[in-house]
Design a binder for these strands. Structure first.
Length: 213
DNA sequence: CACCAGGCAAGTA
DNA sequence: TACTTGCATGGT
């Protein structure tokens, strides 16, 4: 157990409390949200998801049936809407071909195997795959995103050359392998990042980890 | 006006 | 392998 990572988690949890991620009504909604939130503000994703619900498109069958143009129109607020509409279709194609459109069948697959399959889908990279595994299917996989990298860099826990796998391994080899822990830890890092760790403007004033650096 | 947000793929050298 | 670029909306 890495003391530093454990201490940071305890401190964040003490300050912010449980984050209860992922904010969605169904596992499928989590998967769709994971694709829509790529390099995009979450508030815009919520608007897109609301549109999909309104159009009755937020289900495997709904998205499968709908033409690309209709999906694109619905998810417009989330940005990159043409790209993302295609990515949703790609994902649906995978879900149907490999698991007959059944989330349940998908969930019963070994998660490292499933991770490889997801990465083979055009439009699903490491963060999106891991978000689906952890937040939709409750698999013990740590999610790494831009905030995670930025925060670890500022605390000198990683080098700037560290890749996704390096960062994921750092967590998975040094904290307890629990879904609940992975879930809350990543969500807390995002929470911290949103409030105190901007790209070119680290707002250290008042940051709960001020004395950690 | 500039910059940012819970990335990814494709092109280039 | 290691950059670079396109994709796009909405908030600050």
């Amino acid at each position: 157990m890495n003391k530093r990572l454990t201490r940071i988690y305890r401190k964040l949890y003490a300050v912010f409390g449980p984050q209860c991620w992922w904010p969605a009504d169904t596992p499928f909604e989590v998967m769709v949200g994971a694709i829509l939130t790529q390099n995009t503000n979450w508030g815009n994703v919520e608007k897109a998801v609301a549109n999909l619900k309104k159009e009755k498109l937020l289900s495997p069958r709904g998205l499968l049936r709908a033409p690309l143009s209709k999906i694109a129109r619905s998810i417009r607020p989330s940005g990159y809407y043409n790209i993302k509409a295609g990515r949703l279709k790609e994902f649906l194609g995978f879900l149907c071909k490999s698991y007959q459109g059944s989330i349940k069948k998908m969930a019963s697959q070994d998660h490292w195997q499933l991770r490889r399959q997801l990465l083979a889908v055009k439009g699903i990279g490491e963060e999106t795959a891991d978000s689906i595994l952890l937040y939709s299917l409750s698999k013990p996989v740590f999610v790494v995103d831009a905030y995670t990298r930025r925060i670890l860099l500022r605390h000198r826990l990683i080098k700037k050359e560290a890749g996704y796998q390096d960062i994921q391994n750092l967590f998975m080899e040094n904290i307890k392998n629990r879904v609940k822990l992975f879930n809350e830890y990543h969500a807390l890092l995002v929470r911290l990042g949103k409030e105190f760790c901007f790209k070119n403007n680290p707002r250290c004033r008042g940051c709960p980890l001020e004395d950690e650096r």
